[in-house]
Design a protein around this nucleic acid. Sequence first.
DNA 1: ATTAGGG
DNA 2: CCCTAAT
Length: 652
Amino acid sequence: MVLQNRLGYGFNGYQVPPTPRATRSPRRGSIRKKVDDNQMCAFDLLATVAGKLLEGQVSPSSSNTLTGKEPCAVAKDSIKNEQLDDDSASKVEPSNLVSGAPDLHFSTKEFPVAHIDDCSVLASVITSSDCSEKIGCAEKLVNDESKIQHGSSKVEPLRARNASNVTKAYICTLDELAVRYRKPPALISQENSVKVPLGTGHVSFPACRDVVNIAVRDDDENSSGCTQPSTTKTAFRPSPRIGDRRIRKILASKFWKAAPKLKDGEYFTSETKPGYHNRKNCYKRKRSLRDYPLKKRILYDGRSLSNSDGGITSEGISSSPRKGFSCDASGSGATLHGAFGTTSGVASRHTPFQSRDSHVKLRIRSFKVPELFIEIPETATVGSLKRSVMEAVNAILGGGLRVGVLLQGKKIRDDNKTLLQTGLAHDNKLDALGFSLEPTVSQAPPPVCNEDHPLLLSCNAPQPLTRYPPAPSVVHNIVEQSAADALADPPLTSVGSFVESDHDSAPSPPDLSDKSPMDSRALVVIPEMGAEALAVVPMRKSKRSEAVQRRIRRPFSVSEVEALVHAVEKLGTGRWRDVKLRAFDNAKHRTYVDLKDKWKTLVHTARISPQQRRGEPVPQVLLDRVLDAHAYWSQQQAKQQLKQQSDTCLLL
DNA sequence: ATTAGGG
DNA sequence: CCCTAAT
């Protein structure tokens, strides 16, 4: 232990910087922003693909709609539509965009259900790909949540950089959708001429606020569905008084509790709370659905994947549209069962999509895991290696993946299109259907590494329990607030020694019993590519170096903050390397850049109102010290600059 | 490799 | 946390 810090540790006074730092020339504005805005915007990517997709699908006569537009325009349109909200249900109607495409006529009437083996995420995404409204809702919710979490100062949701948040909320919403979607949904849209048959348990697509409500209530299966056309409009309209905060609250807490409780709770089981930094965020189906295991193949291959698009195409997809497959509202639990049972091979029978009960049955025989990066010392045991791989697999399946849908090698990025619109509902197209697992930008498969000695975690003992729930089936481990994960940090009682070495990434204690003779220092499991041809979207750069994953987010604990404050008080800002050496020498996962960044956020945190702060609350005392130290060292810096200026003047 | 800043 | 320019 390099340093012993305690909360409330007295401030020993500031230290004079050893060397007056030269005045830095003003930084040039980074071009980064432009890159972000122009190239990394998720919507841009999506739009590009959507545009290409439409080009290939829409008949020439309809090329004056979406096709002719700039991809960016598409993106903006979709955003705008979302923001307009309220009646977006009607405004975003796909058939409006691509009028003239014959297939689209049935899109509002028929809703094929895709059933995918075992993977809830897949099921969610697939099923939702035809739920145009719900997807939009999900993103809308994300927007709202981000707005809250970022405070009023800065709202940049839905950007690639914030994909983490997006993914989190997105998926959770999708899960909800999947649960709901087991009932035969019907698209309600005022703009569509097709009337929604008020048959068995049709579920309308509520606007985002309604989604929230759905998440809360269990018994609304019919309340939101089977809506009379007349009342539909009002049902879609979000009540204005519902503020962001409420949405967030419901999203964060109620939903995650409610979802597993949903009628046939057999459907999803969440082991822990959601979150991209939660490696165990892994949905598992209970017994009723587990009969259809997801085969995973890990390929040992030297190739790396190219960026987020370098997903792996699923193989062995068989599908067959089936008419008359009934999934009534009550028997939703059996829906997946029935769907999975009999598929094999691809039926080429043409399905009359006029049928209400026309469904698309899909069966994915196996998926390849996109990428696993595992670093493990050669002294590690095979057992620990297994656990490491397990960790990585769980992490990547639990939230580190997103699903791509491909049709004839082309990625379908437009989640708002129905299966019918994309042509997936046609038997002849089903052969060309493919799925891909793509690493989420945010959820990097946490590099599992058992370096050093992951022992002596005395003060942090409870932590691994929180972060690595022992068994699935622990439903009550669901944490309610996203920020609550900060609670997983070492309790304040262990202030004596903070800044432990990076034990977080060593979940499984090394099994000292049997030493592995493994020679390789690092085992790298890299997927088969198979996605080169899918480069529908010209990626900025698809180099192997793209495999570098974003580091796992590790919120600073209070004790860490305390250490940082103390060190900065002593050393000042601008000597982050010294700060690192002094207070965080043992925390390998904290770089001096991290410390600098943390200080930056600390200063910011100290300046905003406590209500706007998020995460584990930092004691006000500490924040006061932050402000004091910041002021002091800023002043010192200014003095130094003045002194240097006068010096140079004298020299001249 | 470090530092400073913007994202 | 990431990315990068400038040291």
